[in-house]
Structure formats: C-alpha cells, structure tokens
Design a protein around this nucleic acid. Sequence first.
DNA 1: CTGTTATTCAATTGATCTATTGAATATTAG
DNA 2: CTAATATTCAATAGATCAATTGAATAACAG
Lengths: 219, 219
Amino acid sequence: MSSSPVKHQLFVQFARVGKTLSNPHRLALLEFLAQGERSVDALARLSGLSIANTSQHLQQLRQAGLATTRKSGQFVHYQLAGDEVVVLLEALRRVAEQHLAEVERLVKTHLASKDHLEPIPADELLKRMKQKRVTVIDVRPPEEYAAGHVAGALNIPLEELEKHWKELPTSREIVAYCRGPYCLLAYEAVAKLRHRGLKARRMEKGFPEWRQAGLPVEM
Amino acid sequence: MSSSPVKHQLFVQFARVGKTLSNPHRLALLEFLAQGERSVDALARLSGLSIANTSQHLQQLRQAGLATTRKSGQFVHYQLAGDEVVVLLEALRRVAEQHLAEVERLVKTHLASKDHLEPIPADELLKRMKQKRVTVIDVRPPEEYAAGHVAGALNIPLEELEKHWKELPTSREIVAYCRGPYCLLAYEAVAKLRHRGLKARRMEKGFPEWRQAGLPVEM
DNA sequence: CTGTTATTCAATTGATCTATTGAATATTAG
DNA sequence: CTAATATTCAATAGATCAATTGAATAACAG
C-alpha cells in the first residue's frame, strides 16, 4: 500500500512528542515552563537536576517542538512553544487521573485530605472577584508572580505568609492559587490560613490554566 | 521539602502515560482502537505487526490506562478506555502538527497536494446534511462501518468505489470520510471521484472525532 | 479426548535512554 | 586580555525498550 509509509512517518513524528512526555523530570520542567519563561539554571534549581542534565532535557523539549528558546546575553530562556502544549499536558493529566489507580491513590491520600472544602473553579472565582467578595492571593515566589499573575491577586509567597496576617481579611473569603492542579503551595497556604481561623479555599487548577483560559492576567 | 516526593510520584505516573505514546506502532494501534473495539489478531493484521508483538503493545496500552479489554470466548477485544483518550491523541497530533517542521513537510507533500479544496468541518457538514444538500460516504471497510458510522452515511469502501458510480449523485456534492485526519482513504476516494467529474470533498477529521464531538451516530 | 485457534508468557538480542563527568564554547565584567 | 558565569557538547556505564522466537494457556469444534 502506497499510503502506509507516509502514515507511519507521521506516527513516528507524533511518537517523538510522546517520547518527550515519557520522563517525569521533563514533565516537571514543562510544568515550571507553564508558569512563564525560565533560564536553564533557574530550571535546574527548581527541579533539583544537575545543570548539564537539565540542559539536555530542555533540548529534547525543544527538538520535540514543546519549547522554544530566546537567548539574551549569556542566558538562554526557555518557554513553552504555545498554548496547545498546555492543552496537551492537561489532557495527559486527565487521562492519568481517570485511569490510573495509582494516581487516584496518591491524590486521595496526599492531597484530598488536606483540603476538605471544594476548590473554587476559575469562572466562579472571577465572578466573585468582580463583586469584591474575595481576596485572591498568589502564593508562588515573587519571580513567578512578576512574570504574570491573576489580575488583582496579591503576592504572598508561602514562606512569608506569617508576616502578612494583618493584610488579610478576617471575614471575607481568601482564595489561594499556585502553579497548577498538582502544585502543593496553595494546599499548604490554605491549611495555614484555616489554622489561624481565616476562611480560605484553593482555586481549582492554577495560573497556567487561568491564563490559557483567556481570563484576566496582569504582568 | 515535604511535598516534593509526592509530586514526583505523580509525574512518574503521568510519564507512564507519556511512555505509551512514545512508540509509533502503539499510536497506530490507538488510532485503530479509536474506530471501535478490535480483537488482538484483527489489530495485528491492521498494523502489520506479529501477534505476540501486538499483544505486548496492547498490554502496555492497558497498563497505562489507555485501553480496556473484554473477553468473549477465545477472543480478547480491546477498546479505548474513554473519550479523554481521544482528546489526548488529538492534543498530541495538534502539537506535533503545529511545531514539528517534519510533520508539516509530510502533510504538505503527501496530503495537501491530493486535496486542493478545503475539507468541510463536521458542524458545517451536519448543517448541510439536514438540508439534504450533500451525500455522505464512509469509505472504510464494512466491519468498521458496522461498528458505528456517521448517521445517514452510505458505506462505500474505497476498493468498491468503481462498482457504485451509479448510486452517486452527479450534481449534488459528495463528502467522504474515514478514520481520522491522517487516514488516507478519504483523500484517495475524493481524488477518484473528482477524476470522474463528480463534486467531491473530504470531511475534516474522521469518524472518531465526529463521535467524540457528540454528533449523530448510527450503528 | 484431540486438534485448532486466539492470546499470553518468558527469554534473548540489539537498540535506545538517563545521568554523570569533564571539557568546550560563548558572553560579560574587570 | 583574563577570569567568571551560563550553557552546551561528548563520552561513558547502567538501565530500559522493542522485536523475535518458541512454549504455555485457554476456549472451542469435532
């Protein structure tokens, strides 16, 4: 059949993308990149990998078309190649969540137990923000906040939460968010806030998904 | 950091799914499965792999949560684990298409040249079907047609196209579809129909995407 | 019960992937 | 120009993957 080799060539190309999704460290790097662009050594520090190893994984991401680079001085900044990549990661997560018992177990034992109240969906949050019924806090580090955040959110990194008790409302609900559905910063922030008697919830998903949904963002 | 190991465990699980997408033969098997359930040896014949090899790839799909099995007599029927899997495959394709130059080259040289007219999107096709302005033909083999097809479509397998000239309208437009965006049957059918002077176009995407979009299906 | 068919299992070989190491390149500061 | 920093390159060793082969199950037909 004449069409078979072409078709196979296409699948070979699709498999290249699949292959880059086959390593947990690369997935972690992609999640960091979903926050915004990062230099190689920033990513190495975030991921805990060696510089050389990080560099090699990043090059694979670039070769598979998942990331692009921008050179500025001696730094090379990597960023996601486009929104479709966020969609792909989301689809991967969803399949894993839905069909792998191990994922369910991990989420149940480590995440769900930390947050009994329902997380608030993005659209619902936006509605309440317009009515000024909530205070939204971004618990990521300042660099990530600076690279883009939910419009109107305050930046209170998790480590500095204690210093900012006074700025937080006691009656109004507080909503925390961080990097994505499996970023634990927001879970921990909510736990701390509740421990102090404040009304706190977690935003469903995280900043990359918020931006990807086209909701209002500030830089 | 206490959250790190849990998070890494999650990425390890996601990577399991990614790994199963890293082999072109498995992707081909997934595309066949997207048409409907199939026995192991049907899939072996379709893919051209040995039975044992096919079986092993299928087991990997099952272990990664992408496929499920149903045993009936001596046959084991595999099928996709859910619609999220179709979404995932679609996302994978889209990223590859958008960012891999090699995919663009393959599509341009082997597919685009065979079909100068725009393919018709599913929703547009549905509208015209209701107005009875088009004849829709399903050019897949009868077994696949029998397992489910676009409501109202005629089954005219590519090899039998010549036998059915008389049944086809000469003035009304004919729309052909097959297995998916990279299935070539519809391209070839359109080429043959045009060569005979009929007005023919291809449906954008294929049957799995049609079904997944919730559009009307017949069994 | 025997032979047949569909599927899976187990063992092997060659290929590919990962992390590490140390060196090479490139940009900037002094 | 020299030293320092950020990144990449090249070579290596150990682990994992893919396809083949032949055998093992399991369901069915006669």
